Amino acid sequence: MSLIQKIHHVAYRCKDAKETVEWYEKHLGIMFVLAIAENEVPSTKAPDPYMHVFLDAGNGNVLAFFELPGQPPMGRDTNTPEWVQHLALKVDSVDTLLTTKARLEAEGIEVLGPTNHTIFKSIYFFDPNGHRLELAADCGTPGMMQKLDAVKREMLDEWSRTRRAPSHAAWMHDGTYA
């Protein structure tokens, strides 16, 4: 049994709290639910003014951002490829995914995809802070999910030994699932 009940919130840094809230409201329909501002960090007592905003991403999932005007400009981990660090958000259908892609592109937001991962399809884009977002629509069958579940430990063990991609789930991208 897991100690964890659910993710309380996930926090990222932002360049401008107001711009970030308005962007997520406008483009993803995510509601602004809470703001906390302090001149001192509660956990460390460091003098570091911040605005901490919380957005309702649905089903009790909370996405939060910190604006930190006293810190150097935000950057990204340059040793990690841009595609790795991202936040994936689930949508209800592939139709919603495609409609959202068209709407985002009409607003001038560059969108990659949809990418077919067999068990889900995704689109990718960046928020105004440079955070990569993924919207994903599940489309896997119970059989596909069972097939993946059956090999997950073997795949992890093989990866741990070889640091090469195991082929147990190659069917997800090579079109051989039957």
Rank of each mutant, 00 (worst) to 15 (best):
H86Y: 06
L87F: 04
A88F: 06
A88T: 13
A88N: 05
L89T: 01
K90H: 02
K90F: 01
V91T: 00
V91G: 00
V94Q: 02
D95A: 03
D95F: 03
L98R: 03
L98C: 11
T99K: 04
T99E: 07
T99C: 02
K101N: 05
K101Q: 14
K101Y: 10
R103D: 15
L104W: 07
E105H: 10
E105D: 07
G108T: 13
I109V: 14
E110V: 13
V111R: 11
L112K: 14
N116A: 09
H117S: 11
H117A: 06
T118N: 10
T118Q: 12
T118C: 12
I119C: 03
I119H: 00
F120P: 00
F120C: 07
I123G: 05
I123T: 06
I123F: 12
F126E: 11
P128C: 06
N129W: 14
G130T: 13
H131V: 13
H131E: 06
L133I: 15
L133N: 12
E134L: 04
E134I: 04
C139L: 11
G140S: 03
T141D: 11
P142T: 10
P142F: 06
M144T: 04
M144K: 04
M145D: 07
M145S: 07
M145A: 06
Q146P: 08
Q146M: 13
K147I: 07
K147W: 07
V151M: 05
R153M: 12
E154N: 11
M155Q: 15
D157V: 14
D157F: 07
